[in-house]
Amino acid sequence: MNDTLVTLVGNVATGMDYRESPNGAVVRFRFAVTPRYWDRQRENWKDGSTSFYTVWARRALAVNLAGSVASGEPLVVHGRLRVRDEENDGKRWVSAEIDAVAIGHDLNRGTAAFRRIVRVDAPLTEAQKAAVG
């Protein structure tokens, strides 16, 4: 209810780490976001500091992402921001993660061809039919 939703525009920095879990498919990858700004003194565009995020996608989004996206591709990622502040062996570190809700290619920088996935539900077993009534 009080989640921080963010939308990031950047590039895939690593390959898709795809795994099957008991709760369904999961994909993890690193995402690089580099802001650009206009340098008035030099009259040209400059890159700012790159921020890296770990993006998590689950279930159908994970399956479709793993089959559609490769390292280096430009994306738009929308999801819940999670900032972790931890200490390990006396060293403190902060990381930012995104639990993705939606991901798509950045069409300002290329084209994409969308293919809808048709899902077929498995037929009910005899026990399920009896339970439904």
Score class of each variant (00 low, 15 high):
P35H: 09
R19Y: 00
V6W: 08
I117K: 12
T54D: 02
R40V: 07
S95L: 04
R116G: 08
E97P: 01
G79P: 09
A62P: 05
V69G: 08
E86M: 07
L5E: 07
R109P: 02
I117Q: 14
L5H: 13
Y18D: 11
N44H: 09
N11G: 03
T54Y: 00
Y37L: 00
A13D: 09
V101Q: 13
T111C: 07
D3K: 09
A96K: 00
W56F: 12
D121S: 12
A127F: 11
G24K: 10
G133K: 14
G72D: 02
V12G: 00
S71Y: 06
A100C: 11
V27I: 12
W93T: 13
N44A: 00
A70W: 10
A70E: 13
A96V: 01
R84E: 12
L65N: 09
P22Q: 10
G67K: 14
A122M: 06
G72A: 02
A112H: 09
W93E: 01
N88P: 00
G48K: 02
R109W: 13
A113C: 03
R82S: 12
V9F: 05
R92L: 06
V33E: 04
T14P: 03
V101I: 15
P74V: 00
D106M: 05
T54V: 05
E97K: 00
N2V: 07
V6P: 02
S95Y: 03
A102E: 15
S51A: 10
A113R: 09
